[in-house]
Nucleic acid binder design. Structure first.
Lengths: 242, 242
DNA sequence: CAAATTATGTCGGCCGGCCGACTGGCTACT
DNA sequence: AGTAGCCAGTCGGCCGGCCGACATAATTTG
């Protein structure tokens, strides 16, 4: 029943592509000419649920955006354990790190559900962005935001209780990075085990905490799907100093 | 008895300034012309033990380097608790984040002992680095490294036992970021409480773990000073999957 | 030099989250 | 359709690290 959308988006004309990308603040902030060049040089591609379309260690392949569906960024440690880092929503651009410095990708990117992605190949990234210093700075900017977020995360979130961290992560993952005013979208195709890796506790504990949040009516948790029902309630939990 | 060095370094001539800065790989990688411009435009300044010479939230003030002594980067949470992020050694450049994007400083920087710092004021950073895209990329590069390190830290180090984390942090803090081949220097003026904030456990636990490391002959821990005696031993602890 | 302040060392009790284990539910495979 | 494999839910026992408390040592202050 959810099999709609995909083919529709696939036969995108310029207009659809443009409006899909421009949902994100980063892309919307580019000048029209650069946008046009990106749209002309980029490729649209369908990916299936659970498909790993960027692999950790791969050579820099380009700059990506999610057009439809949901995806996540995660790393796999040498030990084999994977850790969830972020969840991507339509309009989000990602893989900035490799796109900016040309070194290998640091994270896996996996489709959480059948999705449509946009990719600007790395040679085109260089051609379009490296030429103009102003544009290059713009390409770098999300990195700076990321650094600051990571530092903040390391110094505050780490020290919270598992319940507070869970509330914080749910709020964070359920909306777009660069559209923080947006509504909270449901998390799709995300196992409790992976969520636990982001909350920094065990699957069992995460399961119990999710149960409590659901009992309190703040979320709805079902198989492979978590809905945020009361974002303010979650925010209160996150901020309670207890 | 440690009162040497300072006045000596204070009356730096160009030669001394240059060789002090060039100990770090980042600076050494710059072309001679840029180095000369930085040395001509920068200021050398003495700071006293415990002096907070960069405050979190301050406007971007420039790019810094430590010439002599030891310093640390830390953040203070709204709750008042401070967390140690990194330790700086002679030749290290720092405050790249604010220097690159011009936004306020994210961390406090505190002298661990009486030290000498070099500062290139922010307007000069812009004048020298923003003009040439190649140079700008070079200024950004440490950020990229930092992002990759933070991600790695978040996904691996976090999951270790306190003892493993302590061993890892001691190794990390005791040598320069950009000169990772160097020897391990003693940590100075660092309270166990602050160290505990980086190890993510309580002061008491940290104290006990330090005691064990000392008993095993891997470190020497005294008031306000920790010497690394057996780096390989610490590495073994860090890597033991136990 | 005495007093105040801050850092280090140590203990016992407690509890939150981990671990192993098992069941039942959902999905994917052929 | 049926079966294999992964995911969600739940429980009891255990233990590592937290907490509060206190004594001592080093440092700073006046």
């Amino acid at each position: 029943m959810k099999r709609k959308g995909l083919s529709v988006v696939l036969k995108t004309k310029k207009v659809d592509l443009h409006s899909a990308l421009a949902r994100g603040a980063w892309y919307a902030g580019l000048d029209a000419d650069t946008q046009a060049r990106m749209e002309a040089s980029g490729r649209v591609r369908n990916v299936r649920r659970a498909e790993v379309f960027i692999k950790q260690g791969d050579e820099a392949s380009g700059l990506y955006a999610l057009m439809d569906g949901q995806a996540r960024a995660q790393t796999t440690a040498p030990s084999g354990k994977t850790a969830l880092l972020s969840v991507l929503h339509p309009g989000d651009f990602f893989a900035f790190i490799a796109a900016a410095d040309g070194r290998p990708h640091t994270m896996d990117h996996v489709a959480s559900v059948d999705s449509v992605i946009f990719m600007l190949p790395y040679p085109m990234v260089r051609e379009i962005f490296a030429a103009d210093p102003k544009l290059y700075v713009y390409l770098i900017d999300p990195q700076m935001v990321l650094v600051r977020r990571l530092v903040e995360y390391l110094t505050t979130t780490i020290r919270l209780s598992p319940m507070q961290r869970l509330a914080e992560r749910l709020l964070e993952f359920s909306r777009s990075h660069y559209f923080p005013e947006g509504e909270h979208m449901p998390l799709l195709g995300l196992s409790q085990e992976l969520l636990a890796s982001a909350v920094l506790c065990t699957r069992q504990t995460t399961n119990e905490l999710l149960g409590e949040l659901q009992t309190r009516g703040l979320i709805k948790s079902e198989y492979g799907r978590i809905d945020i029902l009361d974002a303010d309630g979650l925010r209160k939990i996150h901020q309670s100093n207890n």
